[in-house]
Design a protein around this nucleic acid. Structure first.
Length: 256
DNA sequence: ATGACCCATGTTATGGGA
């Protein structure tokens, strides 16, 4: 049995105690983090090591930043997308127990008519090209992270209000389907799930209390792993913490 | 109601997130 998880922590400096608490309660084989918002010299490697975790990290000042935490050492570490020049620290990958684990903080895109949306589209093109190679090299692969894409209307609390808005545009959803077309499966949808399952709730407007959110954090598994998936769940508990991240972890369980 | 929050920044407002 193996477990892999993803969590956008929205500043690891703020959330480190919550991450360590969560790992103690949820001893997964690997956890990928997004939005650490730390330069590499400030990464709290010693704190993870003291708790018995291996860690790889890749960050920058103020924005973005990713990490790969694992019980066993990760090998063949990759940072960002080979073949796609990027100033922003958004991807970290490693092989853990024979499984290629890729963690990504996909661009937000801000608004469909913005330069940031153009960047998001180019980034997704680059990701897909690289993933095709990664899948050829590593048949057992999980792609996890904050995709900043709500794949379907059932992933949106108010699909009418969000129609055409960022995270819900046809272009973003087409990119998600193109990733699926590489031979990947949304592990969450392999199982019957509670309706109105979200992974993110706005800090504003009492959104969590009213359960107004989006499902934008995902775990995609390769065809080789798909028959091994026994569970995939969103863990809402950390969203109830004091000073929570606006995202909450997603966990997949595989019979390996 | 084009709002409401949270995080980082050598801040006391601004940009970004989603």
């Amino acid at each position: 049995m193996k477990k892999f998880a993803t969590w956008n922590v929205n500043s690891l400096a703020v959330r480190l105690p919550q991450v360590l608490d969560w790992l103690a309660a949820n001893p997964v084989d690997a956890l990928v983090l997004q939005e650490t918002k730390l330069t590499d010299d400030k990464f709290p490697a010693a704190e993870f090591a003291a708790a018995g975790w291996q860690v790889q990290w890749f960050g920058q000042k103020t924005y973005n930043g990713v990490a790969l935490i694992s019980r066993e050492p990760a090998t063949d570490i990759a940072k960002n997308i080979a073949g796609f020049a990027d100033e922003q620290a958004r991807v970290i990958a490693g092989t853990v127990g024979g499984v290629r684990v890729i963690g990504g903080y996909f661009p937000n895109g801000q608004a469909p008519d913005s330069d940031k949306f153009v960047y998001k589209m180019a980034w997704l093109d680059g990701l897909r090209a690289w993933l095709q190679q990664q899948l050829a090299e590593h048949p057992q692969l999980v792609l996890m992270g904050d995709f900043n894409i709500a794949p379907e209307d059932r992933d949106v609390y108010d699909p009418v209000a969000w129609a055409g808005q960022i995270h819900c545009t046809p272009q973003e959803r087409e990119h998600f389907q193109q990733l699926v077309g590489l031979g990947l499966t949304d592990a969450f949808r392999l199982f019957e799930q509670p309706p109105k399952s979200w992974s993110w709730w706005d800090y504003r407007n009492l959104a969590f209390r009213k359960n107004q959110g989006l499902r934008i954090d995902h775990i995609l598994v390769s065809d080789a792993l798909k028959p091994r998936v026994t569970a995939c769940e969103i863990d809402k508990a950390p969203r109830r913490n004091e000073r929570p991240s606006d995202h909450t972890p997603v966990v997949v369980t595989l019979d390996l």
